[in-house]
């Protein structure tokens, strides 16, 4: 069976003067639809760099990356910014530690914001209400972000990622700014999204409790998986 994402021998090398830093040092990983992959590790271990490459936000220095049956990076064929954007549009939704909500837009407007740039991606009012209801933020529909708690803001960010109808949700430290109660809520939400919607989740976290939701958990150090 073809994997949703296939990463083979991925290297990411940064140069600082004459020094060569191997941020990703030859990682291979296959991710299937419906997976939950959790990646943990210390700061600077290369977790975020790796998911950025998988999520088409960055190109690797070498290696091969195929997403949804299309090889987006192969030797001698780096994608342009526009091409990467198109792949992101089709496959990925992102959730970051900071929520990056637009402060002047209401909760509902923030959620449908991706549709501004993808005209085909129209979210009907019913779909929007259903999504917000599922995430427990329906009552906050017309509020501005600064009225919300951190947990609510992260749920809005997740809703925004889901509004893209993404196949894969990349969550980079989604609970990094939240207390334990809110973190637990987000954890349950991610599990539910995977179980009920079949959304593939790639999770980067320091939080061991959150990492437990991973069907596969990888620990990174110095640009490699060590466990």
């Amino acid at each position: 069976m073809e994997h949703l994402i296939t990463a083979k021998d991925i290297f990411k090398i940064f140069k600082r003067g004459s020094e060569e830093i191997r941020a990703i040092n030859g990682i291979s990983l296959d991710i299937d639809a419906g997976d939950i992959v959790a990646i943990t590790g210390e700061s600077g271990s290369g977790k975020t760099t790796f998911v950025n490459i998988i999520g088409s936000l960055d190109n690797p220095t070498s290696g091969e990356l195929c997403i949804n049956g299309r090889c987006v990076f192969a030797p001698g064929a780096a994608l342009t910014e526009g091409e990467l954007t198109r792949i992101r549009r089709e496959i990925f939704g992102y959730v970051f530690q900071k929520f990056f909500l637009v402060p002047t837009l209401t909760v509902a407007e923030n959620i449908v914001l991706p549709g501004v740039f993808q005209p085909k991606l129209e979210v009907s009012d019913a779909e929007l209400d259903k999504l917000m209801d599922m995430l427990g933020i329906l009552a906050r529909k017309n509020h501005l972000p600064w009225h919300l708690s951190g947990g609510e803001m992260q749920r809005v960010a997740i809703a925004r990622a889901l509004a893209l109808r993404s196949k894969v949700l990349i969550a980079d430290e989604p609970t990094g700014n939240l207390d334990s109660k809110r973190s637990e809520e987000i954890k349950e939400l991610l599990v539910r999204l995977n179980r009920e919607q079949g959304i593939t989740i790639i999770l980067v976290t320091h939080n061991h409790n959150l990492a437990k939701i991973g069907k596969r958990v990888y620990v990174m150090k110095d640009g490699r998986f060590i466990e």
Partner: peptide, 16 residues
């Protein structure tokens, strides 16, 4: 700056 980056991660093209 960051917000624009996020918009692009959400599929906004440079032209958008």
């Amino acid at each position: 700056y960051q917000e624009i980056g996020i918009l692009k991660s959400m599929g906004a093209l440079p032209g958008d």
